[in-house]
Simulated assay, not measured.
Amino acid sequence: MADMLLKGQDKNGNGLKNQTIRVGTRKSQLARIQTDNVVQMLQNHHPHLHFEIIGMTTTGDKILDTALSKIGEKSLFTKELENALERNEVDLVVHSLKDLPTSLPPGFTIGAICKRESPHDAVVFHPKHVGKTLTSLPEKSVIGTSSLRRAAQLKRTFPQLEFKDIRGNLNTRLKKLDEKDDFSAIVLAAAGLRRMGWENRIGQILSPTECLYAVGQGALAVEVRARDQEILEMVSVLHDGETVLRCIAERAFMKHLEGGCSVPVAVSTTLKDFQLYLTGAVYSLDGSESLRETMQMNVKFPLENEDGPNDDIQHVGITAKNIPHGAQKAAEKLGLEVAELLLSKGAKQILNVARQLNDA
């Protein structure tokens, strides 16, 4: 079905022949693996182009002694990359989509969203607890997570456990887990562990009933200058129709709630027989209060009559000319409607209190 959501795509790279395309990325091992994967896909589609990868350090990579939610900067892992894009030092940048704010700076757009890896959260256990689950851990066991979203949901589901902030890249966090006795387990994105080749460390995958995931989690995004039509056209071959529609709904939901990493907002999406389902939820910091709703929307739209005035339309920062505009519009509407439903039931109050407590 994902293929049916995509128009035919140009593999000729337009007028970019023999050019070197500079690709910006964070320097962490996971970011480099993700960027190498994206560049390899682009190389397969555009064999005549040369790609050069340029690594950079972001604010989020530098500040390792403070919880992400307390730094108060929305573009922690993206700002330096976007600055390089603005200065024409790179032609495109590769991000984990969940790191990208729902409102991009003027002049930028997400030109491609690759097929999503598992969006779920995974539990990695201390070597002495291998084979256990969160339910079977001893009472008062300490679980490490840098995410308010994970902590709020897991406190609610596993009240017998304790939760403590843990920062650093994947390598650093696993080292802290394995070499000390501070944590019985840590919670990470399954996608990152799989991309690093560490699937054998996953002791438990959290289902949406236990822990809804982050907006855009598991998907890779390619950000470009919105006016750079040749680059936009070149990267658009990577769009995965199903992933794009799911992520548009998720991002629209979060944007309407004015959510970010400083408040616990969570989602789950599925696309089946052209019906897009979105579950959205908000939580208090301790998980004691929550609102959760599921809605669906038909996203089956014809491909014809799609060119022309719709060409430069973005949906929550995403430009996807090769996916039916009507389908994208429906996905965005679904996100807005789930957010509106939660707001009508008091989501604003829960999020405001969460934000104030986190800021304090």
Rank of each mutant, 00 (worst) to 15 (best):
I313R: 12
G107N: 12
C261F: 10
T20M: 08
G168E: 09
S284A: 09
P302Y: 08
K98A: 10
V23K: 00
T59P: 10
Q160S: 11
L154M: 08
G280A: 04
G8D: 15
A252D: 04
I202R: 03
H48T: 13
S288P: 10
M4W: 10
A330I: 10
N352I: 07
D91A: 04
S118G: 08
G144I: 03
C114L: 15
A221I: 00
L137E: 01
L291Y: 05
L5M: 13
N358A: 11
L341E: 11
N310Q: 12
T57S: 12
S146L: 07
H95I: 06
I143H: 01
I110R: 00
L85Y: 00
S268R: 06
E199G: 12
T25M: 14
V244H: 00
Q314G: 06
H48L: 10
R156Q: 11
G144E: 01
A249W: 00
L336V: 14
L257D: 01
D240V: 04
C247T: 05
F163I: 07
K7L: 15
R116W: 02
F125G: 02
R225C: 13
S141C: 11
L97Y: 04
H45D: 09
R246Y: 05
G326H: 09
I54L: 14
S184A: 15
G192I: 02
V39N: 02
M234T: 08
D61F: 13
D273G: 15
V124H: 02
S75Q: 12
T135I: 12
F183Q: 02
S118D: 15
R251E: 02
G60C: 07
G144S: 08
P106V: 10
G216A: 00
G260L: 03
M297H: 09
S103N: 14
D99G: 04
D165C: 13
A112I: 03
P105R: 07
D359T: 13
D312Q: 15
I231Y: 00
Q40S: 14
R225D: 07
S184K: 07
A226D: 04
E293V: 11
K164Q: 13
D165P: 11
D91V: 00
E233I: 06
L177C: 07
G13W: 01
L137A: 05
